[in-house]
């Protein structure tokens, strides 16, 4: 069969062109807006799914995975050469902010306190405050940063954790990935990755503003770790132990980042 020339459509009139254009506009608008709407619904559903997702240590599991991945990216920036900025002693606050009393049970007897250093199973070292004060003393004045968002320039002194490790021959222990610290009542506890613990500004601290630590600042011994938020600077250390797994961490269990490095 042959297509006859008579069947060829005549050129569209301006009205037909206008109508075709309107149809085209309507079609493209509707398609785009349906897609737009569906993507919007998907975004809202995705967010609700994320918010309602079962938790891993106090935070939605997918968020926790990303926080752990963030650590793997940003712990590369940690270096013994990167020091927290230090200040002259005159810049230090005289009224030092006290934040948090978990692990500070009132029935604590500082006179019988000893630091327990668990070197291995059934191999525990007990140290008095005097023992620790025998070690080389280091002072630091730095801007203490709380995870809540405030910071304060404060003055501390004690022994560098790295010096402590050297003096007590804890090299085998320091070769592990983490150090765990907890209060005598085990109510507060932190885990610190070893590179941060061995950072030259990390102190086992027994003095604040040139005097023994006040009881509410962790007398007899606390941690001062400027490369982390204050939540890691545990007060009143009772026990120290070493591990290749993450030691339990009080605020981690409540949804915070494990690394919490600055």
């Amino acid at each position: 069969m042959e297509q006859s020339a008579a069947e060829q459509p005549s050129p569209p009139t301006p009205e037909q062109q206008e109508r075709a254009l309107e149809r085209e506009i309507r079609r493209r608008t509707i398609v785009s807006f349906i897609l737009f709407f569906l993507l919007g619904v998907a975004a809202v559903m995705g967010f609700r799914w994320l918010k309602g997702h079962p938790q891993d240590a106090g935070v939605q599991a997918p968020l926790r995975s990303v926080l752990n991945a963030n650590e793997k990216i940003f712990d590369k920036t940690l270096s013994d050469g990167h020091l927290a900025k230090t200040y002259p002693v005159s810049a230090a606050a005289t009224h030092v902010r006290v934040n948090g009393d978990v692990g500070m049970s009132p029935n604590f007897d500082p006179n019988t306190w000893k630091l327990r250093v668990i070197r291995a199973a059934r191999d525990t070292l007990f140290l008095t405050l005097k023992d620790i004060q025998q070690l080389p003393k280091t002072e630091i004045v730095f801007d203490f940063k709380c995870i809540e968002g405030w910071s304060q320039v404060t003055h501390w002194a004690g022994v560098k954790f790295s010096d402590f490790v050297k003096q007590y021959h804890l090299d085998a222990q320091a070769a592990m990935k983490y150090v765990g610290l907890r209060t005598p009542d085990s109510a507060y506890y932190v885990g610190i990755d070893m590179p941060s613990a061995l950072h030259p500004q990390t102190l086992l601290c027994y003095e604040m503003n040139g005097k023994p630590l006040p009881l509410n600042q962790g007398y007899p011994l606390r941690l001062i770790i400027p490369v982390k938020y204050g939540i890691k600077s545990i007060k009143r250390i009772g026990t120290m132990y070493f591990s290749d797994q993450r030691p339990p961490d009080y605020w981690f269990e409540r949804g915070y980042d494990y690394f919490s490095g600055l």
Binding site: T77, K85, K145, L262
Partner: peptide, 21 residues
Amino acid sequence: MYKPVQLHWLCAALGGYESAR
């Protein structure tokens, strides 16, 4: 603000920790 110690140069360039906030 996220890494004020490791990226101290950036923090300093922005006028410090409080200023960045």
